[in-house]
Amino acid sequence: MGSDRKSKRTAYSSPSESEEKKSKDKHKSKRSKGEVNMDFQELSSDDYFAKNNEFATWLKEEKNVFFSDLLSESARELFAEFVKAWNRGKLESNYYEGIATAPRSSHNWKIKK
């Protein structure tokens, strides 16, 4: 009985490192709209904070929505859409190169210099 359990565990082993690498690498060169061909790291929902500038810029440019106008749940749902576009290589090259600042709100700050 104990040996049956071990064989079942090995039969359902996780993919090898080379299989996972192939899966991730397949997105590296896909681009549309004449975009620059470059390597990029695939994203997941865990990258919500790390790619917030890119996400906020995408929201404004593609959805005409400011990040600050969204509820948390809506932002997470839209981030999932952003991740899909990112991982398919459908975004402009500036997203993959990195964006330092992003539009956050429609508020016009009147700060004197």
Results as ranks from 00 to 15, higher is better:
Asn37Asp: 12
Lys21Phe: 04
Trp86Thr: 07
Glu97Arg: 12
Lys60Tyr: 06
Ser32Trp: 00
Ser3Val: 11
Lys30Val: 15
Phe82Lys: 05
Ser93Ile: 03
Ala75Ile: 07
Ser3Asn: 10
Lys22Pro: 05
Asn108Met: 06
Glu17Gln: 09
Lys90Ala: 05
Pro15Gly: 04
Tyr48Lys: 09
Gly34Met: 04
Ala85Asp: 12
Ser16Glu: 09
Ser68Glu: 11
Lys60Val: 05
Ser3Tyr: 02
Arg88Gly: 03
Thr101Ser: 11
Lys112Pro: 09
Glu77Cys: 03
Gly34Asn: 15
Phe66Ile: 11
Asn52Met: 10
Trp109Gln: 12
Glu73Trp: 01
Ile111Ser: 11
Ala80Ser: 15
Thr10Cys: 03
Ser32Gly: 10
Glu77Gly: 06
Leu43Gln: 07
Ala102Ser: 15
His107Val: 15
Lys113Phe: 08
Phe82Ala: 02
Leu78Pro: 06
Val83Ser: 05
Lys33Arg: 14
Gly34Pro: 12
Glu62Ser: 14
Ser3Leu: 08
Ser68Cys: 11
Lys30Asn: 15
His107Cys: 04
Glu54Asn: 07
Asp39Lys: 08
Ala80Lys: 14
Pro103Leu: 00
His107Tyr: 10
Ser14Asp: 10
Val36Gln: 13
Ser72Tyr: 01
Arg104Tyr: 05
Leu71Met: 05
Lys6Ala: 13
Lys63Arg: 15
Ser45Tyr: 04
Asp25Trp: 00
Val83Ile: 15
Lys33Pro: 02
Trp86Gly: 04
Asn94Tyr: 11
Phe55Met: 07
Glu42Cys: 14
Met38Ser: 11
Glu73Asp: 13
Asn53His: 08
Glu73Lys: 15
